[in-house]
Lab assay of single mutants.
Amino acid sequence: TYYTVKSGDTLNKIAAQYGVSVANLRSWSGISGDLIFVGQKLIVKKG
């Protein structure tokens, strides 16, 4: 599943919304830090 980052989103908010960890969200999407951008597509795998 892809999630497109919206204004005001954080990795914590997105992870909580999908019931996954921030570490997994980073790993799946190839992100090393906490910086995400509006319009960026993140990969989300539901448990």
Score class of each variant (00 low, 15 high):
Thr10Lys: 03
Ile36Thr: 03
Asp9Pro: 01
Lys13Val: 08
Phe37Arg: 09
Val22Lys: 07
Gln17Lys: 13
Leu35Thr: 14
Gly8Arg: 03
Gly8Tyr: 05
Thr10Tyr: 03
Lys45Asp: 11
Tyr3Trp: 03
Val20His: 03
Gly47His: 13
Ala16Leu: 13
Ile43Cys: 13
Ala16Tyr: 10
Val44Ser: 02
Lys6Ser: 07
Ala16Glu: 14
Val20Ser: 03
Lys45Cys: 12
Gly33Cys: 08
Leu35Cys: 11
Arg26Gly: 04
Val5Gly: 01
Tyr3Phe: 03
Val22Gly: 03
Lys41His: 10
Trp28Val: 04
Ser32Ile: 14
Lys6Val: 11
Gln17Ile: 13
Tyr3Leu: 04
Val38Met: 07
Val22Gln: 05
Val20Thr: 10
Gly30Asp: 11
Lys45Phe: 14
Leu11Gln: 01
Tyr2Thr: 12
Gly33Asn: 10
Ile36Cys: 05
Ile43Trp: 12
Ser27Leu: 15
Ser32Arg: 10
Thr1Val: 15
Ala23Gln: 13
Lys45Glu: 10
Ala23Trp: 07
Gly33Lys: 06
Gln40Lys: 03
Arg26Ser: 08
Phe37Asn: 08
Leu42Asp: 00
Thr1Phe: 15
Ile36Asn: 00
Gly47Asn: 13
Asn12Pro: 14
Leu42Ile: 12
Gly39His: 04
Ala23Lys: 10
Tyr3Thr: 03
Gly19Phe: 07
Val38Asp: 06
Val44Asn: 01
Thr4Gln: 08
Arg26Asn: 05
Gln40Tyr: 03
Asp9Val: 01
Thr1Trp: 15
Gly30Pro: 04
Gly19Val: 05
Ile14Met: 01
Gly19Tyr: 06
Asp9Ile: 02
Lys41Asn: 09
Ala16Lys: 12
Thr1Arg: 12
Tyr18Asp: 00
Tyr2Ala: 08
Asn12Ile: 15
Ser27Lys: 14
Tyr3Glu: 02
Leu42Ala: 01
Val22His: 03
Tyr18Leu: 14
Tyr3Met: 04
Thr10Ser: 09
Ser27Tyr: 12
Asp9Tyr: 02
Gln17Asp: 11
Ala23Tyr: 08
Ala16Val: 11
Ser29Gln: 06
Gly30Ser: 09
Val44Lys: 01
Ser32Phe: 11
Tyr18Trp: 12
Gly8Asn: 07
Lys13Asp: 11
Ile36Asp: 01
Ile36Pro: 03
Ser21Thr: 14
Ala16Trp: 10
Ile43Met: 11
Leu11Pro: 02
Ser7Val: 15
Phe37Ala: 09
Ile43Gly: 03
Val5Arg: 00
Gly8Cys: 04
Leu35Ala: 14
Asn12Met: 14
Ile36Arg: 00
Val44Glu: 01
Leu11Phe: 05
Leu35Asp: 15
Lys45Thr: 10
Tyr18Pro: 00
Leu11Tyr: 04
Thr1Tyr: 14
Gln40Asn: 04
Ser21Cys: 08
Leu11Val: 07
Ser27Val: 13
Ser27Gln: 15
Lys46Ile: 15
Asp9Lys: 00
Lys41Thr: 13
Gly30Cys: 11
Leu25Asp: 01
Tyr2His: 10
Gly33Pro: 03
Val38His: 06
Gln17Leu: 14
Gly47Thr: 13
Leu35Gly: 11
Asn12Thr: 15
Arg26Cys: 13
Ala23Val: 10
Thr10Met: 03
Val38Arg: 05
Gly39Ser: 04
Leu42Gln: 01
Leu42Arg: 00
Ser7Cys: 13
Ile31Leu: 14
Lys13Ser: 15
Lys13His: 10
Ser27Arg: 12
Ala16Met: 12
Ile31Asp: 02
Lys45His: 14
Gly30Asn: 12
Gly19Ile: 04
Val20Ala: 06
Ser21Ile: 05
Lys41Cys: 11
Gly30Trp: 05
Val20Trp: 03
Gly8Ala: 04
Thr10Asn: 07
Ser21Asp: 08
Ile43Pro: 05
Ser32Pro: 08
Ser7Met: 14
Ser29Leu: 04
Asn24Glu: 15
Val22Phe: 03
Lys6Thr: 09
Thr1Cys: 15
Thr4Arg: 08
Thr1Ala: 11
Ile43Phe: 12
Lys46His: 13
Gly8Lys: 05
Ser27Thr: 12
Lys13Ala: 13
Lys6Trp: 03
Val38Gly: 04
Lys45Val: 11
Gly8Leu: 04
Gly39Glu: 04
Ile43Asp: 04
Asn24Phe: 07
Thr4Cys: 10
Thr1Lys: 11
Ser29Pro: 02
Ala15Val: 02
Gly19Glu: 09
Asn24Gln: 15
Val38Ser: 07
Tyr18Ile: 09
Ser27Phe: 12
Gln40Leu: 07
Leu25Trp: 02
Trp28Ser: 05
Leu35Ser: 14
Ser29Ala: 08
Gly19Ala: 09
Thr10Glu: 05
Leu25Thr: 00
Gly8Asp: 06
Asn24Ile: 11
Tyr18Cys: 07
Gln40Glu: 06
Lys41Ala: 09
Gly47Tyr: 12
Ile14Thr: 00
Arg26Phe: 05
Thr4Ile: 15
Ala23Ser: 11
Ser21Ala: 07
Gly47Met: 12
Asn12Val: 15
Asp34Thr: 08
Gly8Thr: 05
Val22Pro: 08
Asp34Asn: 11
Ser7Leu: 14
Thr1Leu: 13
Ile43Tyr: 10
Phe37Ser: 09
Ala16Ser: 11
Ile14Val: 08
Ile14Pro: 00
Ile43Gln: 10
Asn24Ser: 11
Ala15Pro: 00
Val20Ile: 15
Ser32Thr: 15
Thr10Cys: 06
Lys45Gly: 12
Trp28Asp: 06
Gln40Gly: 03
Ala15Phe: 03
Ile36His: 01
Ser21Tyr: 04
Lys46Val: 15
Tyr18Asn: 07
Lys13Trp: 10
Ile31Gln: 03
Asn12Phe: 14
Leu42Tyr: 02
Ile43His: 08
Lys45Met: 14
Ser7Ile: 14
Ala15Lys: 01
Ser27Asp: 15
Tyr2Glu: 12
Lys13Pro: 00
Gly39Trp: 05
Asn12Gln: 15
Gln40Asp: 08
Asn12Ser: 15
Ile31Lys: 02
Ile31Pro: 01
Ile36Ala: 03
Leu25Asn: 01
Tyr18Val: 09
Gly47Trp: 12
Phe37Cys: 15
Gly33Met: 07
Leu25Lys: 00
Asp9Cys: 05
Arg26His: 06
Tyr3Val: 08
Val38Glu: 11
Lys45Trp: 13
Ser21Gln: 06
Val38Phe: 05
Leu11Cys: 04
Gly19Lys: 10
Lys6Cys: 06
Leu25Tyr: 00
Ser7Arg: 12
Arg26Ala: 09
Ala23Arg: 08
Gly19Pro: 00
Ser29Ile: 05
Val44Pro: 02
Leu35Tyr: 14
Tyr3Ser: 00
Tyr2Met: 11
Lys6Leu: 08
Val20Phe: 04
Gly33Glu: 08
Gly19Thr: 05
Leu42Thr: 02
Gly39Asp: 05
Thr1Asn: 12
Asp34Glu: 10
Ile31Cys: 05
Gly8Met: 04
